[in-house]
């Protein structure tokens, strides 16, 4: 099942490799949604801490939605 001798992998991670991808790893739909949610939260927190004095938080929401869309569709 696994090509490594020193470790067993009890679980398989099923990915799609028949599509062009931007992310450095092969992913499936769940992974891409997960990654975009993680990035979305990170952008919002960063914005709250450093940039909110200059620009409204809604800008962060728009940026993260765009990033999320790109990751989910092209990632």
């Amino acid at each position: 099942m696994s090509d490594q001798d020193s470790i067993h992998h009890p679980v398989e991670h099923e990915v799609e490799d028949d599509r062009p991808h931007l992310l450095p790893i092969y992913t499936n739909m769940f992974d891409r949604v997960f990654i975009s949610v993680v990035i979305m939260v990170a952008i919002h927190l960063f914005w709250l801490r450093f940039l909110e004095v200059y620009l409204s938080l809604y800008v962060a929401t728009i940026i993260s939605l765009v990033v999320g869309y790109i990751i989910i569709r092209r990632g």
């Binding site: 992998h9 679980v11 398989e12 028949d18 092969y26």
Partner: peptide, 18 residues
């Protein structure tokens, strides 16, 4: 911790391409 856990998951699982 979920972000950290993602790396653990990737290192614990075998990738199977579909």
């Amino acid at each position: 911790t979920i972000v950290a856990c993602w790396f653990l998951f990737v290192s614990l699982t075998a990738v199977r391409k579909r």
